[in-house]
């Protein structure tokens, strides 16, 4: 009888706890999830649609040119009757490829230059930073146009053009970070512990700046996509038969004046939406690597 009175397993919690979590956390999570979903959708679309969908993006149908969005062509058709949804996906694929390739190149160059300048110091630092200043003093687009003009139109000249105009900011960020780290006592401790210059750079400095550099790289992808679009829009980037978001908008210019909005709107959206999604994800990531109150969180 008395047996079924269970012994209290743990002291009952009599304390009334009050939470402090700011209410905006929930919308933040939603924003991050939306961004992640959109980025995932973008990546899946450009990776899966071309091999899975057996449709030719170049299929011309002059009988159905400049049709507004319909069930058959959700985004409408362009001035030679090509399906715009398909063209947009292929365009996004090219633009994203250019963006990622250019951002990676720019980040590698920028990190190398910035780390070298910061870690070596002295005249090497001054010389490298003068090069950076010189490049920065020329307007990006102008320099980009100049570089593209030296090659035959194609994807790689655009990548090079965008990369060469975008490594500067990364170099500056990385150099500043290295300089601030270099004066930390833990570098002194490493030197005193017998670490070589190379070991200090590879073991202590570089890993500390990599999150920064990677963040800069991610943020640079949309930047590079816009740069590509700008070049293509000016007719200097990719040849018009290669669908990129820039070339799509460029060819649609004429029809916009005639009241046909869809050939401009949809490529534009394809440019803006991934940009915002990537920036949203990068922002969340930045909050993770630079939490303002890390020490408080950790007591």
């Amino acid at each position: 009888m008395t047996c079924d009175a269970p012994a209290p397993a743990a002291a009952p919690e009599t304390t009334q706890w009050r939470s402090y979590g700011p209410k905006r956390r929930s919308t933040r999570a939603l924003r991050v999830r939306t961004s992640a979903a959109l980025v995932a959708a973008t990546v899946l679309a450009v990776l899966l649609v071309p091999p899975l969908v057996q449709l030719d993006q170049q299929a011309v149908d002059l009988a159905a040119k400049l049709r507004p969005p319909s069930f058959q062509h959700p985004f409408g058709t362009d001035d030679v009757g090509r399906d715009l949804l398909l063209r947009c996906v292929y365009g996004l694929r090219v633009s994203l490829l250019v963006g990622v390739a250019a951002a990676l190149t720019a980040t590698v160059v920028g990190t190398a230059v910035g780390a070298a300048a910061g870690a070596l110091g002295g005249w090497a630092d001054r010389a490298l930073m003068r090069v950076v200043d010189t490049f920065s003093s020329v307007p990006h687009l102008l320099l980009g146009i100049f570089i593209v003009a030296m090659f035959r139109p194609g994807v790689w000249p655009v990548v090079i053009s965008v990369a060469l105009t975008h490594w500067l900011s990364t170099a500056r960020i990385v150099r500043a970070e290295v300089l601030s780290l270099r004066s930390r006592p833990y570098i002194d401790a490493a030197v005193s512990g017998g670490a070589s210059r190379w070991r200090v750079a590879v073991r202590h400095l570089l890993p500390a700046v990599l999150p920064q550099a990677a963040l800069a790289a991610v943020l640079m992808v949309p930047h590079a996509m816009w740069h590509e679009s700008a070049l293509s829009f000016l007719g200097l980037g990719l040849p018009t038969h290669t669908a990129s978001l820039g070339t799509l908008i460029q060819t649609a210019r004429g029809s916009l004046l005639a009241g046909q909005w869809w050939p401009t709107l949809f490529p534009g959206l394809f440019l803006i939406v991934p940009t915002l999604a990537i920036a949203g994800l990068a922002g969340a990531w930045r909050e993770r690597i630079h939490p303002r109150h890390r020490s408080e969180l950790m007591l």
Binding site: P185, A189, A190, V191, S192, H204, P207
Partner: peptide, 22 residues
């Protein structure tokens, strides 16, 4: 030279800044 540097052991005031956070 490395063997001279390592003849010294150093400890600083602020442990937080003296440790590689990773």
């Amino acid at each position: 030279p490395r063997d001279r540097r390592t003849a010294f052991g150093v400890v600083f005031q602020q442990a937080r800044l003296s440790a590689d956070p990773r």
